[in-house]
Design a protein around this nucleic acid. Structure first.
Length: 597
RNA sequence: GCCGACGUGGCUCAGCGGUAGAGCAGCGGUUUCGUAAACCGCAGGCCGUCGGUUCGAAUCCGACCGUCGGCUCCA
């Protein structure tokens, strides 16, 4: 096995995986898995099997695909091999010997790996008993060290991550030093599943999917879900306005020609919904998959611009439609109808750094308001593969990349670099976060574009009366409302902060005779701008408290005879319990304080 | 799109060759209650769709649709 993880890039693995003991343990467990599969399925061809965060995987080319039903037998064999306590020994070979060895063992993937190793690489194998694998190491001393592991799932994976190649069978597993750590990890997985936004979205009545009736990847928002969306968007709109952004609106259909001119048609045709024909006029439309060309058109048609008009910032909450492949759809995090909080900033080259800084501060303010700290910033650059989508204009790319780096450095942002992740028109700074199950998603982004403005004929007149092409910064704050909401639900485990909760307060009158008072209190709070519901169901108070707690409503107001008499309500905070009786004025003051916190 | 698993009332799930079950939710009644589940009753499903095997299919086989876990992709 060749371990190309930390610097390989090929595997798309994160560079932060440390070469520590746990890494070594997992790496060896991957070998153990491979040996077990080899013993159970003679003729298996091995691909690669690296350690990954929390575990490992191994890719096999097998006569038949594995399913989880095969796991007990494989795990049993792994334990058996572990009990043999085979020493794991390193053996170095020269290239020709290594190649011949792998060919003799009918391991074509290993041969391919050897052929691709740089000239000066020391080629090593790790042997345990009569089983051996191409591998850089390091490993634990013997198979006896491997005790606390579990196979988790199978998956198809293309050889070398290329969909043109053969699909292999990948087995994922986890491994730990102690049984407690293993069990703890499995428990964490369980807990993560409990905060899955798809589950919570259903339980909390936020959204549904109707693949058979409306379509896959098109979330339908219930009143509570729409309330949260509305709050999220109003909030970002308020911040953007405060930062000098202007909001525009550009519709849902666009003539296809525009995307041919912008370059999107060539790069993303397959990911757009099929064209629509206006037969009478002979025009072809597309559902709008991105805003840039529309905003640039708006720029062009709203009068000739002077350098004094720049920077000009067009923001839009636009619902876009993208034909994501069926297998890629995932709850709210990957949808076909998505609402971006998009913005295009038209500016001069000299303004890039300050505009980037402004966008960055805006993003940081918003993420902080949401209590969002678990993200990292990726500087996404092009690669030098001549077949890739990136527009070829070295000078402009170099300029854009330098501008982005300067801006990141000037603002003291920590980031890591990823080649091949840029947009076709320029490099970007992407903000990545993880969902409950550890999958990484892009939220905020700032992109430098030296290409599209020229293609679409954007211009301004500089201080010398000369025509110039503006630079465009593409920028999204929360990314898409849908995805960000999905990630937020998981971060909060469904318990939204007071300002964002769709229902901020449930009023619980103890007996029927308290209903009128409850409605009176509710009306008062609604008048003060808070979202309240009266739970007047014929259920015991304890049951209604329980339901409100399970629905993650931040506040419950309970009222009985004492309260009616004293004109108070008894305040209960979710997860905290009874805070005692308060007057309405006190409640409004408390609510205001919680809302603005 | 590709590989694998799964698809039973609104929700969570049992049944896996012989005429469809439970809990929760819903509806009707009784109860009027002080901080996380009162009681009684009623109703609700062509078992994803289409085709095949069988005397007989929710149960076995196939195709399609959808969901889930990955892979690929992500303007």
């Amino acid at each position: 096995m060749l371990l190309t993880c930390p610097d390989g890039g090929v595997l798309g693995l994160d560079e932060q995986i440390p070469q520590d003991d746990l890494y070594r343990l997992r790496h060896s467990t991957a070998h153990l898995l491979a040996q077990a599969v080899g013993e159970l399925f003679p003729g298996v061809k091995y691909a690669i099997g690296p350690p990954i965060e929390d575990g490992f995987y191994y890719d096999f080319d097998l006569p038949r695909p594995l399913s989880e039903e095969d796991f007990p037998a494989i795990e049993a064999r792994m334990h058996e091999i572990a009990r043999r306590d085979l020493p794991i020994v390193r053996e170095e070979m020269d290239r020709a010997t290594a190649r011949a060895f792998c060919e003799r063992n009918n391991q074509p993937y290993k041969v391919e790996l050897i052929d691709d190793l740089p000239e000066d690489t020391v080629i090593s194998f790790y042997r345990q008993g009569d089983w051996s694998d191409l591998c850089r190491g390091p490993h634990v001393p013997s198979t006896g060290y491997l005790k606390h592991f579990k196979l988790l799932s199978t998956a198809g994976a293309y050889w070398r991550g290329d969909e043109k190649n053969r699909m292999l069978t990948r087995v994922y597993g986890t491994a730990w030093f102690t049984q407690e750590e293993l069990e703890d990890y499995l428990r964490r997985l369980e807990e993560a599943r409990a905060r899955d936004h798809r589950k919570l979205g259903k339980e909390l009545g936020l959204f549904v999917f109707a693949p058979e009736q409306v379509g896959s990847g098109i979330p339908l928002f219930l009143p509570k879900g729409e309330m949260v969306r509305h709050l999220m968007e109003s909030y970002v709109r308020e911040v953007q306005t405060r930062y000098g952004y202007q909001h525009v609106w550009t519709g849902h259909l666009v003539r296809e020609d525009l995307y041919k001119r912008s370059g999107h048609y060539d790069n993303y045709r397959d990911a757009m919904f099929p064209p629509m024909q206006d037969v009478d006029a002979g025009i072809t439309y597309r559902l709008k998959p991105m805003n840039c060309p529309s905003h640039m058109t708006l720029y062009n048609l709203s009068g000739l611009k002077s350098y004094r008009d720049l920077p000009l910032r067009y923001a839009e909450f636009a619902t876009l439609y993208r034909y994501e492949k069926s297998g890629e759809l995932s709850g709210l995090t990957r949808v076909r109808a998505l609402t971006q909080d998009d913005c295009h900033i038209f500016c001069t080259e000299a303004q890039i750094e300050s505009e980037f800084g402004l966008a960055l501060r805006l993003i940081q303010e918003v993420l902080q308001r949401y209590g969002f700290t678990d993200y990292r910033v990726r500087l996404s650059l092009r690669d030098d593969n001549p077949d890739s989508k990136f527009v070829r204009d070295d000078e402009k790319w170099a300029k854009a990349e330098q501008a982005l780096r300067n801006a990141l450095d000037a603002n003291g942002v920590e980031y890591f670099e990823a080649r091949g992740e840029a947009a076709f028109y320029g490099p970007k700074a992407d903000f990545l976060t993880r969902d409950a199950l550890g999958r990484e998603w892009q939220i905020s982004t700032i992109q430098v574009d030296f290409i599209q403005p020229a293609r679409l004929g954007c211009k301004y007149i500089d201080e010398h009366g000369q025509e110039q092409t503006p630079v465009v910064l593409h920028r999204a704050v929360t990314g898409t409302t849908e995805r960000f909401l999905g990630v937020l639900i998981e971060q909060y485990a469904g318990a939204f902060p007071f300002w964002l909760a769709p229902v901020q307060c449930v009023l619980i009158p103890i007996a029927d005779r308290h209903h009128a008072y409850a409605h009176q209190v509710a009306a008062h709070l609604q008048g003060a701008g808070f979202r309240c519901e009266v739970d007047g169901r014929n259920e015991k108070m304890g049951k209604r408290i329980r339901d409100a707690e399970l629905q993650k409503v931040p506040v419950m107001l309970i009222m009985g005879d004492r309260d009616v008499e004293n004109q108070t309500v008894s305040v209960r905070r979710r997860g905290e319990g009874d805070l005692g009786a308060k007057t309405l004025a006190e409640v409004v003051a408390l609510f205001t304080q919680w809302r603005d916190a």
